[in-house]
Design a protein around this nucleic acid. Structure first.
Length: 468
RNA sequence: GGCGGGGUAGCCAAGUGGUAAGGCACGGCUCUGCAAAAGCCGAAUGCGUGGGUUCGAUUCCCGCCCCCGCCUCCA
């Protein structure tokens, strides 16, 4: 089945046709975070969506070559490191590490390569040199280097901008007199006092790379002059991605990216997330409220299609949690049925159909909610069959395999429950008094366990514990 | 003003030119010492609004209203 993805360049859903002549390898470049702070859930909405793309590509048999850079030099990182009195590298490595931890919490598969921008200064300098040589860039009076937009007629193609209109628009920075054109953007920023000890030597003097150039340089360095998919948050479309196209294509003369993948923003309670609103949450904040990374991942994945705004609410987190519990209960039943199933040679039709249903759902621009819809239908089917005592071990295995296929894309895994020793002790004690039919004591122990944050339920197979 | 994304049950959210997936919440039932959980079953007279095309539109076209995003470094 062919994977079709919405391409924000063409504004249409298109079948993915890899550049690789063998049709096997797919190159994917994703603009990573600027590491000056902990990532918020809006950042991670993007990376969870990219993870969905990555996993879906693998599900459809592609070999994914994925690069995501970390932006470890810019105004914010420099300001942050100076405030904390730390060398830039030390400062950014804290947040790089934090990002990787949070990604792990959300079960995001890391890219094959995650370079830091500052480790590639020579590559960026070389690329800028090439652009100057080709007259696509110029050194301004103040010693910075700018990209000359007038040299790139295609400029604005990604966002379908009419440059004449844009330039006559209101928001033109009057101070930028050293630029030839208002749309020109910086490739190399001349060192200023506020940069402190941050700076690199270059043919144009001491300075630092502009933001956009790193993605062009790193993408070319690791994935080649042309790539299949380039992704990131929707806010990056303009100017960042537009600038990347200009830089890259001016340098190589080749189409930079075949397919643009943009993830829409996350809202919180219908509002744009912002510090002043007090609605900016980090992954850590969500965990502190008692939710798991898995629950957040589910909420981020199922809350809306990746190309639509996702409205984050705590109600939504609770919904996600409950839905996940339903899946988990079903998983327990299936696992048990794989060994305890009755005998009957027939294949389980719902599981067979399911494999095709999810392929179709994912192939259509990663329609995860369609896939989840089929999952819950499969859950109902199997539960019913299970209730009737008619699911065979072989059929349960089919269902198990169907789940594994789906979960390779969802990345939810099974719930893992680690029971603290003191809770286990109470549980054992309770099992004993229940055997003696001392229900008063049993209820008392249930309460004690509850105060420790766990719920106990009594099933035919004994007590079952879950975090409350 | 330019460009883009939306308006589907109480909430979230798929989808289709032929009469509405799914999740949460809700109601009933089953199970259960009780409880909770779980399981099963049920429920939309209609997809922002006014027109149009069509045998038939929520799905196509036109107008209108409302919400959101981007418009120079924010995922």
């Amino acid at each position: 089945m062919a994977l079709e993805l919405y391409n924000s360049m063409s504004r249409a859903v298109e079948p993915l046709v890899p550049l690789d002549p063998a049709g096997k390898r797919v190159s994917l470049y994703v603009c990573g975070p600027t590491i000056y702070n902990y990532g918020h859930i809006g950042n991670f909405r993007t990376y969870v969506a990219v993870d969905l793309l990555r996993r879906a590509l693998k599900h459809f048999g592609y070999q994914v070559d994925h690069v995501m850079q970390f932006t470890d030099v810019d105004d914010k990182t420099i300001r942050g490191s100076r405030e904390k009195n730390l060398p830039l590298k030390e400062f950014t490595s804290i947040y790089r590490q934090a990002f990787l931890e949070d990604a792990k919490t959300l079960n995001i598969e890391m890219a094959e390569r995650t370079p830091n921008a500052t480790d590639y200064i020579p590559e960026m300098v070389a690329l800028i040199g090439k652009l100057i040589e080709k007259k696509s860039a110029y050194v301004s009076d103040d010693g910075s280097v700018y990209f000359r937009i007038a040299s790139f007629p295609k400029y604005g193609c990604l966002c379908h901008l009419d440059m004449a209109n844009l330039i006559s628009g209101a928001r033109v920075n009057q101070d930028e007199y050293e630029k030839e054109g208002v749309g020109d953007f910086v490739l190399w920023k001349k060192w200023v006092a506020a940069d402190g000890d941050v700076g690199w030597d270059s043919p144009w003097g001491k300075g630092r790379p502009g933001w956009h150039i790193e993605c062009s340089a790193l993408s070319m360095k690791h994935l080649g002059e042309q790539i299949d998919i380039h992704g990131g948050g929707t806010d990056l479309r303009f100017p960042h991605h537009e600038n990347e196209i200009a830089q890259s294509e001016a340098a190589t003369g080749l189409t930079f990216v075949k397919h643009w993948f943009h993830v829409e923003h996350l809202l919180v309670d219908g509002q744009k997330m912002s510090k002043s609103q007090g609605n900016m949450y980090t992954v850590r904040d969500v965990l502190a409220k008692g939710y798991t990374g898995r629950e957040l991942r589910y909420a981020l994945l199922s809350g809306a299609a990746y190309a639509k705004n996702l409205n984050f609410t705590w109600q939504g987190m609770d919904d996600a949690k409950t839905a996940l519990t339903r899946i988990d209960e079903w998983r327990k039943r299936i696992k048990a049925a794989v060994t305890d199933g009755v005998s009957n040679a027939d294949s389980f039709a719902a599981a067979v159909a399911f494999r095709e249903q999810i392929d179709r759902a994912f192939s259509h621009d990663l329609n995860i909610n369609d896939a989840l819809g089929h999952l819950f239908q499969l859950i109902r089917e199997t539960n019913k069959t299970l209730d009737a005592g008619q699911l065979t071990a072989a059929q349960a295995s089919e269902v198990e395999a169907a789940w594994i296929a789906l979960d390779s894309v969802l990345g939810l895994g099974d719930a893992t429950v680690i029971i603290p020793a003191e809770v286990q002790a109470l549980l054992d004690q309770r099992a004993a008094v229940r055997k003696a039919k001392d229900f008063a004591k049993s209820d008392e122990l249930r309460k004690a366990i509850e105060t420790l944050g766990w719920k106990v339920k009594d099933t035919a197979k004994g007590q079952e514990l879950s975090p409350s």
